[in-house]
Nucleic acid binder design. Structure first.
Lengths: 115, 115
DNA sequence: CGTCATGCCTAGCCATACTACACGTCGACC
DNA sequence: GGTCGACGTGTAGTATGGCTAGGCATGACG
């Protein structure tokens, strides 16, 4: 029953991943997914059905700007880069991620409770 | 407009928090929220509208068992404790959380990309 | 010719965290 | 006596956003 219906990501983390990845270099969607898998040593994998809607969402919010261009292999692809707003947003999300992980780390470390 | 639709937690983390908190000691709902806020030094705060549905959900999945009892102040309250299945689930969620944070940490640490 | 990697996309499901509210008891304070 | 805050539980309704599963097009390679 229910072989392993594990989900890969948590809501909110995908934005952070994309923004961070694009903060280094403009990439097209397909390459973003590859980069994330590679950089995380395959710990994280982004399905296309999550990736593309997310890119459109981020673009609509004005955090990314898209432009069609040619890949190294001569194909047309949509390259995304961070806007100024996107870079700002990345800062916010980083802070939020830090707060969250710190909070959870504190709780997980809580082995015994003093009075 | 969307004033500031900030969310506090990420999907999935609430279960982990509750399971971990109850793995130390049986508590009632209200106390769980307080404990989480306290243990995380107020970094994390669980709204009641998130907490109670989550408790019912976890109980339905068989991870928690509930029982009415009296608090120290003499009030009736519903005390939750981990079941064996819940303890197992906690292990799974811990592993998943670890994988996720490691993956994201790798990506966030990615300052420059070699070929 | 078939199949795989590259590249983009969408519809629809579904889990779940949130706001906002409602209800009840108790102690303190004016 | 009335009100307020903390305690304690709960619901309805909404929105977010990741997922599965599909489709489409090109080029390389067997």
């Amino acid at each position: 029953m229910t072989p392993t219906p594990k989900s890969d990501l948590l809501q909110g983390t995908l934005d952070l991943l994309i923004l961070k990845t694009l903060s280094l270099e403009a990439l097209h969607g397909y390459a973003i997914a590859q980069r994330i898998a590679l950089s995380s040593r395959a710990l994280l994998q982004v399905p296309q059905g999550s990736l593309y809607p997310a890119l459109h969402r981020l673009e609509n919010k004005g955090w990314l700007a898209a432009e069609w261009d040619q890949t190294e292999t001569g194909r047309e692809a949509k390259f995304y880069k961070l806007t100024r707003k996107g870079r700002l947003q990345l800062g916010l999300e980083l802070a939020d991620w830090k707060r969250l992980t710190e909070g959870i780390a504190l709780i997980l470390a809580n082995v015994g409770e003093p009075s």
